[in-house]
Each structure stands twice: as C-alpha cells, then as structure tokens.
C-alpha cells in the first residue's frame, strides 16, 4: 500500500519537471547531432531574433490566461501598433511620437476589449474573436487590401537601428526590453493585489465573484495590459523587418497560447507564471532552431513542434491527474 502511494507521488513529482526534462533532452540531442547548436553565436541568434517578440506577446497572453481568459486579438494589437508607428513615420512625424502613438493605438485595442467585456458583458473569448475580425478589416482598409508599408530609405534606418539593432552592456536592446517587461509582469502577477485578483479569477471565478471581486472589471484590465505588451512587440517587429506587413501579428497567436500553457506544466497546480512562459517560448524557439540546424525543412519543423507540444502536455497532464 505504502509502496504504491510512494510511486504515484514520484510520478506526480516527475510530471512537474517534464518541461525541464524536455528542455535538457532537446539541448543534448541537438548538441550531439549538430556542430554549432551550442555555440554562443547560435544561442545569441535564437534569443535575439526568435525569442524576444514571441516572449513579449506571450507575457501578455500569460496575464490573460492567468485570469482564466484567452486573448485572440493579440495579433491585432501587434499590427495596429506597427501600422500607426509606420504611418506616422511615413507622414514625417518624429520617431518618439510614432512609438508613443503606436503604443497608444495598441492600448486602444485593449480598451476596446475591456469595454466589450466590462460594459457589454461579452464573453472574453468572443469579444476578442470579434475584435480579431474587425482588426483584419481595419488593416485591409488602411493598406488598400494588404500592401506592406516599407521604409528602407536612409532617412529611417537610424531610427530602426536605435530600436532593434542597438546594444546595451553587450546585449541587444530588445533583450533588455524583454527583461524589463518580464520584471513588470512578474511584479504585476506575483507581487501586487491585482495579481491576487487575477489568480483567483483564473482558479475559481465563482469564488472571486462571491468574495466581492468586481469580476468583469478586473478581467477587462487584464486585456489592457496584454494589448500594451503586444504594442511593444509590434514596434519591435516593424523596426526589425523595416516594414509593416498587414496581418503579420496573427502568427503570434497560437505560439503564444502554446508557450504559456507549456509554461503551466512547470508549476504544481498548473498555473501560468512568468518563468514558465519564458521557458515555454525558449523551448519552442530552440526546438525550431535545432530542427533547422539538422536540416529539417519548415514543413517538418511544424510537425516536430506539434509533436513536441503534444508529448510535453500529454506527459505533464497525464501523469498528474492519475493520482486523483
């Protein structure tokens, strides 16, 4: 009897480390099978180019998922911010104004979500789905059906270099922006009263309601924070590729959801955390990078990532619930 109990406990404990095991396994496999996977240059490349943007969007998604919602409109915030930024630059306004207006535009998307959820009492999933549809129309109308805005002339390159190519203490500035965002979200979720509201909303919405938490109001705030983070990602994305490509932000949506939920496998009670989400993003990025290095094409990478996510989740959820 005692024996059985012990083995179940160890299985359950094991399930909390699945992400770490997967991480270790991936690193070992790829460093053996490729020459330069573990090289500093490659890791730098992965972090600077692949991790930062997805990580910032995923941090926003983490706040929303922690509160029990899903934000399907992250791509809209990313794109609207880039669109505003580039439109103002092209119209001859200063970069500071452009960045500020881009962030405000993303904030407006979040406020619109908040209005729908708080005032019109629309379910968050549906509200953000509606915003996703509207956002795609807005972008098509603004760009004449989806023509990218490209600003490659000399005039603009110092601005973009300053935003995405500059370095601070040996690391690219987007990485520092990510660090800043991570700390902010960590403080928000784990050190502030608002974070407690978010946690109870996510774990037991009924309890939150009866404990006097103004549920729609607190829930709607979550979407404003998320939109702001997406706005930052939008500015970084557009300055990195030096053009605004309509609807390009939608690519983040599913990866951000995936990364956040992979991160939940790290904690005992399967709650989203900042560290977990960053791990999730990094796991997806190094997996993709490793598959690329061993020569899998983009199609097989897609399959590989899907299988990885599936297996990690199956192990983490499957092992844990056995014990019930």
């Amino acid at each position: 009897m005692d024996n059985v109990k012990k083995s179940i406990i160890s299985l359950e404990a094991l399930s909390n480390y699945i992400v770490l095991f997967a991480f270790a396994a991936i690193v070992v496999i790829f460093s053996v099978t490729t020459d330069n996977f573990l090289s500093l240059e490659n890791l730098y490349n992965v972090v600077a180019n692949k991790v930062v943007l997805l990580a910032i969007v995923s941090l926003g998604m983490t706040i929303v998922i922690a509160a029990g919602g899903i934000d399907l409109s992250v791509g809209v915030s990313v794109d609207i911010s880039g669109l505003t930024f580039f439109s103002l630059l092209a119209a001859g306004y200063s970069a500071v104004l452009g960045v500020g207006a881009g962030l405000v535009a993303a904030l407006l998307v979040g406020l619109f979500n908040a209005f729908l959820i708080n005032k019109l009492k629309i379910d968050a999933f549906l509200a953000t789905l509606g915003v996703l549809f509207i956002g795609s129309s807005v972008q098509r109308l603004a760009t004449n059906g989806g023509t990218p805005i490209t600003l490659t002339t000399e005039e603009y390159s110092p601005i973009f270099r300053a935003i995405s190519d500059s370095q601070l203490f040996g690391l690219p500035s987007p990485v520092w922006i990510l660090v800043g965002c991570s700390i902010a979200v960590y403080l928000l979720l784990h050190k502030m009263v608002f974070g407690r509201f978010v946690a109870v909303l996510g774990a037991k919405p009924g309890v939150a309601l009866y404990s006097g938490v103004r549920v729609p109001r607190e829930l709607s705030k979550v979407f404003v924070y998320c939109a702001l983070l997406c706005g930052i990602a939008g500015i970084l994305l557009s300055s990195q590729v030096k053009s605004y490509i309509p609807l390009s932000g939608d690519a983040f949506l599913l990866d951000a959801i995936g990364a956040t939920f992979i991160g939940t496998a790290l904690t005992k009670d399967r709650r989203p955390t900042v560290i977990g989400t960053l791990m999730g993003v990094f796991l997806l990025a190094i997996m993709r990078n490793g598959l690329l290095l061993i020569g899998w094409n983009f199609f097989w990478q897609q399959v590989g990532i899907g299988v990885l996510v599936f297996v990690v989740l199956a192990l983490s959820f499957g092992l844990r619930r056995r014990e019930e």
Partner: peptide, 8 residues
Amino acid sequence: AVMNIATG
C-alpha cells in the same frame, strides 16, 4: 497541438 501536426 493537433492542428500544428495536421498543418505540418
């Protein structure tokens, strides 16, 4: 995850 696998 299944969606990713199917698309891939």
